[in-house]
């Protein structure tokens, strides 16, 4: 009986200790500078000197970016894979000039194939200085249809599009892009329409 009472008391003391000592041990240490005996009050501008973590990401003025992407083109011959590269100079936080090169690597029976396109134009960035950026662009340029065949033909193209970017660090980002290449080319004496929607996904580097 005695031992049971002692056990109960010990448990009670331990519990009280746990309730009082442990929270004290977890409490923040007291700031020495807030002590009334300190030689001076705390620095009113202490937050002005610490270098903040590099939180800023995203599109900024003056950036030069290079983006390499894989591409899928949806057109008359089904889905055609390709490669796509973009160079982009941010002139203002919201506005850039971009230039793209793309090449489709189409199936042998697709028509036309393959297509090489060089385009340039302005781009409007809607969300600079953010983790996620959206942009709208309009490019114009030249294309060569059936670039690897003897009946290759030149073509002027216009390509509106949009991009969606997710920034991984202040110098790297992922970009998903959608665009529509529109043009007219002549084959066997007949004018033919070229309308292909393309989507690209790749990695961009910004300096």
């Amino acid at each position: 009986m005695v031992s049971r009472t002692r056990t109960f008391r010990s448990t009670l003391v331990a519990l009280l200790l746990a309730l009082t000592v442990i929270p004290t041990a977890w409490a923040e240490p007291v700031d020495a500078t807030s002590d009334e005996d300190a030689a001076h009050p705390p620095d009113p501008f202490v937050g002005s000197y610490a270098l903040p973590r590099e939180r800023e990401l995203g599109t900024t003025a003056g950036q030069f970016r290079a983006i390499g992407s894989a591409m899928l083109v949806f057109g008359g011959s089904g889905i055609e894979p390709g490669v796509h590269g973009t160079l982009e100079l941010m002139t203002f936080p919201y506005l850039s000039v971009r230039g793209s090169l793309q090449m489709t690597v189409a199936a042998p029976d697709s028509e036309p194939l393959p297509v090489f396109v060089a385009k340039t134009g302005p781009s409007l960035h809607l969300l600079p200085y953010r983790l996620v950026d959206l942009s709208l662009f309009f490019e114009g340029g030249v294309a060569v249809v059936n670039a690897t065949k003897t009946e290759r033909a030149p073509m002027a193209v216009a390509a509106p599009g949009a991009t969606f970017e997710i920034w991984l660090s202040h110098w790297a980002f992922l970009r998903l892009e959608g665009h529509v290449d529109c043009g007219l080319y002549t084959q066997s004496g007949a004018a033919r329409k070229y309308v292909r929607a393309g989507t690209t996904f790749g990695v961009g580097l910004a300096i």
Partner: peptide, 13 residues
């Protein structure tokens, strides 16, 4: 920053 300076750099001495 509007000219393109990364904002955290304004904290450098």
């Amino acid at each position: 920053v509007e000219l393109g300076l990364r904002p955290h750099m304004t904290r450098y001495a």
